[in-house]
């Protein structure tokens, strides 16, 4: 069990990072810290993909010295997935930041529980 964990320490770290980010996104009260949690969570997934996609001793799949044997290269798909994931993560973070700015302008705080408390006293029927 422990030997397995040590052999795959990169994946183990990635999953721990995911867990840290997940709990931060779920339980942090400060909106900005929540966003940092979101980014840690995504980074954990990317680390997992990148470390799984890399095979020690093989090269990036660009033919420079005439070797066309697939066994000499790593699979480029995981790297492609990481890039796509980063693009998604950036756009999600951007929209969350803009929402945070809008909330801050209205309530002048980033603490979610205070914002909830204030919103209870609002009367907006429809």
């Amino acid at each position: 069990m422990l030997a397995n964990l040590l052999a795959n320490y990169e994946e183990a770290v990635a999953v721990i990072l995911f867990g840290i980010g997940f709990t931060m996104l779920l339980f942090q009260n400060n909106l900005f810290k929540k966003l940092i949690g979101l980014n840690i969570m995504d980074t954990g997934t990317f680390l997992f993909l990148a470390s799984m996609g890399y095979i020690r001793g093989r090269k990036a799949p660009i033919i420079t010295d005439g070797v066309t044997d697939a066994a000499a290269y790593i699979n480029p798909v995981p790297a492609g997935l990481v890039l796509t994931g980063i693009v998604v993560s950036v756009s999600v973070t951007a929209i969350m930041l803009s929402l945070t700015v809008r909330l801050y302008r209205r309530y002048h705080t980033l603490q979610l529980d205070e914002i909830y408390e204030m919103s209870k006293h609002q009367t907006e029927d429809r």
């Binding site: 997940f22 996104l25 779920l26 979101l38 995504d42 997934t45 209205r106 919103s119 609002q122």
Partner: peptide, 25 residues
């Protein structure tokens, strides 16, 4: 653009992002 929808949207997004993160994993 009323306070309630912005707050609801933040909450909706947070839940959705947790969901997306788990889905991606």
């Amino acid at each position: 653009e009323i306070g309630r929808t912005t707050l609801a949207a933040i909450r909706y997004m947070i839940m959705n992002l947790l969901g997306s993160g788990l889905f991606l994993l």
